[in-house]
Design a protein around this nucleic acid. Structure first.
Length: 421
RNA sequence: GCGGCUGUGGUGAAGUUGGUUAACACACUGGAUUGUGGCUCCAGCAUUUCGUGGGUUCGAGUCCCAUCAGUCGCCCCA
């Protein structure tokens, strides 16, 4: 009997962790520059935080990890927005933070989906939310933040696709128009579109099967149903993107899966052909009713979510070199009966800020040299019985094979001197 | 949830129409060189074992069924 990680989950092994630290660090620094503050919410919430009324999609019905321990129904968070808004309302941050409240989060999310590459059941998502002020410049700035993160990881082949869903009035009118338009053609469309017709008519527009169907090509445009205010808002978003120096493409077929989105929606995708179904780097939009749903004021927010596994995959595809973490400064070799002398030397170096490692099991000099080399030691320190008795150590620099003998007490000073050369 | 493909040691992998000792390479361990490594050479390294569990057969890594996992596409994508 052997054990393995559950389907769609994976271990991040020691060799890969440095990569994650680096990505996390880039995200934190970027958010810091934009003055977004981290918020950490529970990994599970009451189920109704995620299963809001009006959502009848597959996500809520089949793709959530929900459990009941006898004190209510709880669900592992499938995304970050709901928890952040819930916290914003619960702690009345609209009273203590200056608006917009600019928040970011980073951590594991859980979705019971069929796994694929870049699509795990437990995955890691970074996201931001700017809550409390409806303003097109904010919408544009969130895109700039996400693009900055991607750029910092060398991801340059990106395309910003953006669209507007308009306000409630615009979207309701468009939805009605779409249903009216497709009603006579519904029999010609694929079975999936039959379901979409009922559940989310906007999704028919990006159907892969019926992509070139005449009824799709002649379908009414959302832009024709926008109110003047909505159109004006969207134009200001686009102008702001110009000001930020961000190229974009308006894609009037870009929609979202949930009903709470209004006005701006966007997706930033990789244009590298091999990225396939993992092309989306991050996607987000504005939501008008979420804050009041959780008991807060009638204000809107905007945010995006970014899958960090994909981010790392894309960074690697673009040739980004991860630093690999800190290397080894000194490897201390002990030969013969030298007791704990190597430990003492290692500790002196660590106290001075260096990384140091010693051999613990009796091994030949050759074997210990191999370990030192494999660990990429910048300095190799040899302590034999003679040195131990004399209170000295041999210090070797593999680069040029220079070697000196110094009193053990002065080891840190010697390394520092060599480091400064 | 649906369909296709894949699954051999630490890694990459070869394994013909089922036939008896699972190739090769790298990595790793030890030695040649018992206090100065990185090269070279030698040796060891899957010993009912080929993701797991059944089945067919005199005999299965090779065929059949189931199952698990990965992967590609669909659905969905908060």
């Amino acid at each position: 009997m052997s054990y393995q990680t559950p389907r769609g989950t994976y271990d991040i092994l020691p060799d890969e962790v440095a990569k994650w630290h680096e990505v996390e660090d880039i995200i934190r620094r970027t958010c810091d520059r934009y003055r977004y503050k981290e918020i950490r919410t529970p990994y599970f919430e009451s189920t109704d935080v995620f299963a809001r009324e009006g959502d009848s999609s597959d996500m809520v019905n089949k793709e959530m990890y929900t459990f009941n321990m006898g004190d209510g129904s709880f669900t592992l968070r499938p995304e970050g927005t709901a928890g952040a808004i819930r916290a914003f309302d619960q702690h009345k941050l609209y009273g203590s933070m200056e608006m917009p409240a600019k928040l970011y989060y980073m951590g594991p999310m859980f979705r019971h989906e069929r796994p694929q590459k870049g699509r795990q059941r437990q995955f890691t998502q970074f996201g931001i939310e700017a809550i409390g002020i409806t303003n097109p410049e904010i919408d544009a700035e969130t895109i700039a933040l996400g693009v900055d993160v991607a750029k910092a990881l060398g991801i340059s082949s990106v395309k910003v696709a953006i669209n507007t869903l308009g306000d409630d009035e615009s979207r309701a009118a468009y939805r009605a128009a779409l249903k009216e338009h497709f009603a006579p053609h519904i029999q010609d469309l694929c079975p999936d579109c039959h379901r979409r017709y009922e559940q989310n008519p906007l999704r028919i527009l990006d159907c892969k099967v019926d992509h070139d169907h005449p009824a799709l090509l002649s379908a009414p445009k959302l832009s024709d149903y926008l109110t003047d205010a909505s159109r004006e808002y969207f134009n200001r978003v686009l102008n702001s993107l110009d000001a930020l120096g961000i190229d974009y493409e308006v894609d009037d077929r870009l929609v979202r899966g949930l009903d709470y989105y209004t006005h701006t929606v966007y997706e930033v995708i990789s244009t590298r052909p091999e990225s396939g179904s993992q092309a989306t780097i991050f996607g987000g939009g504005r939501y008008d009713h979420l804050v009041e749903y959780f008991g807060g004021p009638e204000v809107s927010g905007i945010g995006f979510g970014m899958g960090m596994e994909r981010l790392i995959m894309l960074a690697e595809a673009e040739g980004y070199q991860f630093s690999g973490g800190r290397g080894l400064d000194a490897y201390i070799i002990g030969l013969g009966n030298v007791g704990s002398a190597p430990l003492g030397v290692a500790q002196k170096l660590r106290a001075a800020g260096y990384t140091a490692e010693t051999n613990f099991i009796p091994r030949s000099l050759k074997a210990q040299f191999k370990s030192a080399e494999r660990n990429g030691a910048k300095y190799i320190i040899i302590i034999g019985e003679d040195e131990c008795a004399a209170g000295t150590v041999n210090v070797k620099r593999p680069n040029d094979k220079a070697q000196v003998t110094v009193p053990a007490a002065e080891i840190a000073e010697l390394i520092t001197k060599w480091e400064e050369e």
